[in-house]
Structures are given as C-alpha cells and as structure tokens.
Amino acid sequence: MKMELAATAAFGLEAVVRRELEGMGLKVIKTEDGRITFLGDERAIVRSNLWLRSGDRVYIKLGEFRAVTFEELFQQIKAIPWEQYISPDGAFPVEGTSVKSVLHSVPACQSIIKKAVVEKLSLTYARARLPEDGAQYRIRFSILKDRVTVLMDTSGPALHKRGYRVANVAAPMKETLAAALIQLCYWRGDDRLLVDTCCGSGTILIEAALWARNIAPGLNREFAFQSWDMIPEELWKEEKARAYSAIDYDKELRLQGFDISGQALKAAAANAEEAGVDEDIHLYRMDMKEFAPRENNGIIVTNPPYGRRIGGDEELDSIYGHLAEILDEDPSWSLFLITAAKDVEEKYFHRKADRRRKLYNGQIMTQYYQFHGRKPE
C-alpha cells in the first residue's frame, strides 16, 4: 500500500535526514522545519526505521485538512480509513499540539479525535466496545493556523534509543545528533584518525563506528510496527537479514576517545561493547588539554563542556584554547566542534570557521563549527 510517510528531525538536521532517506531509494516530496515527507509502502516503514541514523521518528501521514469547528474536526477524522491501519483490538492513544488556531484546546481536540476514531472502528468492526488491549497505534495530531495534520507513529520509542546505551554520564548527547555530526564532517570511514577529545560515554565514536561499518542503527531494538497486522513479520525478517548482510567487517577503523573521567570511560567501554564496536574504539584517560597530535591529517569531532556544566571561565578558556593550539601547531588537522559557548571563533581561534551550522543539543541551541585542515596529499 502506497502511503505518505514523515520522518521528524531536530532543527538543523532536516537536510541530513533527507539525504539518508534518498540513500535508501525513497522519494522525498517535501522538506520543512522538523519534518521530511516521503512516499513509501510497508517495506519503506521497516527500512526507514531500521536505517535512519539522524531522524527522531517515522510516521504514517493519515490526513491533512482545515478545521475551525469541532464538527469539522470530527467528520474529517472519521473519514480517514482507520480500519486499514488499526486492528480490532488495537490501542490508539491520541496526543498533539495546537498553535495559532481556533481549535486551541488540546484536551478538547484529543477527545474529539478519539471519539471519531472509536465511532469509525466500532461501525467497521461491528463492535459496541473496542477492547484496546492489543498493539499500540499512537495517533499524533498537530494544528497550525487551523490546518490539521494527522499522523500515526510507527517507531514507538524515539529512534535515538538504539539499545546500546547500558551506561550513562551527565548530559549525554543523543545518538541521532552524534550520527549527524559524523555525517557532516570530512571523515568517511577511511584510514584517517578520528578523535573525540571529550568522549564522555562514547556516543560520537560509537555512531562513527556504526556508520563506517554500515551497521543499521535499529538492529538491536524493537519498533511499534512489529506488532501491527499491516506489517508482515516476514517483511521485517527480510529487511533485518539484508541489514546484517550489508555490514562491512573488513574495514580498518582508527577511532580514539579521551576523557579525564574514569567513570565516563567505563561507560564508553560498556556502551561500545554493547553496540558491537568495542574493538574499533581505543579509549584513554587523559585531560584533553594534554592531547597532542602524533601524526598528520587527523580529525577531531567533539562536544566539550560549554559553560553550563563546568565551574568557571578559566576552565572553559583552557579547553577551547588548547583546541585552537592543536590547529595552529598542525594545520593539517581538522576540528568539528559543537558548542553553545559564545564568541568561539574570535575569542579562541581568531578566525572564522570554514562552515558553521545551527543545531539543537536537546533544548540548547548550539553551533557546529567546522575548521577544515589542509587537504592531505
């Protein structure tokens, strides 16, 4: 069955997610803030959930229409062929948002939508009562300037929950953002040394290894669609088997992580082992201010503290100052730095970054600065 599907993404990552979808052979028809709409069938639902590295969730787009009264909302929702998606015993919680719309009460909209779906399914399945004790079909609506969009969540837990994070540290980076940082840097899984000087629980390095080895990020987790009648179990098995056969076991990777915290390194080691990439990542306990390159043309991708999690400006100055020194002493090195610290270019590097991109690390607005090193001969 051909459907409109939508992958959501953190602000600034839409282009990355679009490239990922197109790389899967899926046709993207629209890109907007936080959402990429594409066409696909049941296999596309499975494949996009299994392979998306930087997207948040995958939804089925069930309808889009204008509504300024509850009656209009009810009738438009009831007109959707819910029986094509929801089984007779399916549970279908409703959640959503309303912004700058006549129908501004979210609880009231939730109630109307729930009532419309219940009435449609009760008529279709000839049941006076729907048990809702089966698979989850989570319905999400958004109303913006009286325009209603109705979606169904195929992912379940958000896609950043890969399943390998068995140990944690304070303020960890989401796996989806870490995967995007890797895709936006020079490194292509080649023999160049990739370093995270403040590796924490190892997320950036783990995502780099998964990407370089072509390991699907969703291989070790479950999705909401797996319990749906509309997605054959055989389809999931086929796509999962294809993903396993696509893994590159032969590539030589050179990934190094440094952190001053022994606890953080233990977490990084445990997570890397759970992800199956522990042999690719070498971890060292060291103050990043002691890190000195021992070869040319290396790449640093890092998420250092930026003032909200450490004590004072003096510590901040020493961290960013040392990163600038590395580039000054060996111009062949490249630095890809995500931070919310202000005036980084002028204050520490005394030059503009070659590229910069606004990204959100959780609720914190950051810049991803890209300082390109001299191209290797």
Rank of each mutant, 00 (worst) to 15 (best):
L13W: 04
E64Q: 15
M1R: 13
G12A: 08
D33P: 03
V68F: 06
T69Q: 02
L5F: 06
G55D: 07
I36S: 04
D41P: 07
W51V: 00
G12Y: 08
E32R: 12
I29Y: 00
N49M: 09
M24W: 09
R43E: 15
M1I: 10
L26Y: 04
L21R: 08
Y59H: 15
A6C: 15
V68K: 11
G63P: 04
S48G: 05
G63D: 02
R47A: 10
D33K: 13
E20F: 04
G55V: 10
G12V: 05
L13F: 09
V28W: 09
E4W: 11
W51M: 02
S54C: 10
T37V: 14
D41G: 15
A7L: 09
S48V: 06
A7W: 07
A7R: 03
K30P: 07
K27Y: 06
L39P: 04
V46F: 02
G55T: 11
G25I: 09
A9I: 07
E64N: 13
A44E: 09
L26R: 07
I45R: 00
L26G: 09
L39Q: 13
L26P: 00
R66I: 07
F70V: 06
E14W: 04
E42T: 06
V28G: 06
R35F: 02
L21Q: 13
N49L: 01
Y59A: 11
V58H: 12
G55P: 04
T37S: 11
L26S: 08
N49G: 10
K30Q: 14
V28D: 09
R53Q: 11
G25Q: 10
L39A: 07
Y59L: 14
T8H: 07
G23Y: 00
V46N: 01
V17P: 07
A7C: 12
